[in-house]
């Protein structure tokens, strides 16, 4: 479950911002902003992906680096939201 979620998120970022399927190009703990992988609009697109493709609503107050700044953090955030739901 976690692995497939992680794979989906990693794949989305790889394909849309690094344009590759090579998973070595994006470490699970790499900072998406710090490494310059996404900018402000990219982050909005990731949130749309989480909401529309994964089916988890991201509240405005949840848009913080602790939840979104790496693949691992996004996975942990989505899983915690699913548990609550």
């Amino acid at each position: 479950m976690a692995d497939s979620l992680r794979d989906r998120i990693q794949k989305f970022i790889l394909e849309n911002y690094l344009f590759t399927s090579d998973t070595s190009a994006l470490g699970l703990d790499d900072s998406l902003l710090g490494r310059g992988i996404v900018d402000s609009t990219g982050m909005l697109e990731i949130i749309m992906f989480i909401e529309e493709q994964i089916g988890v609503t991201v509240k405005d107050e949840e848009m913080v680096p602790e939840n979104l700044d790496s693949v691992s953090r996004i996975v942990a955030f989505v899983e915690s939201k699913r548990k609550v739901a």
Binding site: L33, V38, S40, M43, D60, M63
Partner: peptide, 9 residues
Amino acid sequence: EDNLAYPLI
């Protein structure tokens, strides 16, 4: 600030 990736901040 550097960007608006996290508007709440």
